[in-house]
Write a protein that binds this DNA or RNA. Sequence first.
DNA 1: TTTCCCTGGGCACACCGACGCGCATCTTTC
DNA 2: GAAAGATGCGCGTCGGTGTGCCCAGGGAAA
Lengths: 159, 159
Amino acid sequence: MTLDRKDLAILAELTTNARASHTELANKVGLSSTALARRQKALEDDGYIQAYQAALDLTLFGLTTTVLVRIALESQSDDALKAFEAEVVKCPSVVRCFLMSGTDDYILIVLARDIQDFERIHRTELSRLPRVARVQSSFALRDIVNRAVPTVVFGETKR
Amino acid sequence: MTLDRKDLAILAELTTNARASHTELANKVGLSSTALARRQKALEDDGYIQAYQAALDLTLFGLTTTVLVRIALESQSDDALKAFEAEVVKCPSVVRCFLMSGTDDYILIVLARDIQDFERIHRTELSRLPRVARVQSSFALRDIVNRAVPTVVFGETKR
DNA sequence: TTTCCCTGGGCACACCGACGCGCATCTTTC
DNA sequence: GAAAGATGCGCGTCGGTGTGCCCAGGGAAA
């Protein structure tokens, strides 16, 4: 399936106002409500729209500190990876985890209330992960860019 | 304002089904639709819910490659930082950018179609950033955890 | 060129459900 | 004990949503 620029406009708008009604979206995109409803349903059915989700302000929960954690395992054997990954998904403070190429094996993004709270997370969550050889933490001083979708997606001008 | 576990249940559900109706949410949380409507509006007004947004399947756009980029600037002077940050927000392929403590100055998360595409991004977007001394890229081989909200948020049992 | 088909768009309508309000009840707190 | 906050029920209204139908445009085949 190929998307034209109206489809992209619909997606762009829905990434901002997921609860917009058909008529509301139709006006912004320049379609009738029924044509828009068809396109939106097609975008959902084809999987372009995975879900509609509420974005929370995590600072109101006290989560103001972002930490990037580099973790190297004792070995790169298959069950070492499996064991580590099975446990890391349970860590409540971890929001991202990548298996990386290069020297560092995993990179995690952890959200904490502050530095003291990260010490607790380090003690109760990270240090209990299996097969870990080395843990290296870097604190994010500021958030410059935070996008769910790269803007390049909406710029593709097909059709 | 303090949130009880029903508020957290509402937020947890809305982070999954942002378009759920009042009655639908009320059944899941265990409230009447009017009590739920009041709470949801309060959560919106107090800023706990920042927005309702559609989550797109970026793989359907060909964006299957995640790259972590570490960028060191020539200097940490204020206008070097300002100049860099003003440009990096314009990069269409960058989804995250942190100013970091420690040796590396910035860490970016870049989405690309593949390695060749990242080469293009490196050439057309990253290498044009001002005041850059060093660029170091690591490819993510796999996505282990990808959450918008840490699960710790919904576990706090106040009230 | 003409005709047919097919895809996508727009209009109108009807139905169903959501939403918001008012009020009574209950709990909690001072 | 009283007041304030929160809950639940019921109602009416409003709006969204889905369907059917017709139309326009483009492509293909005769």
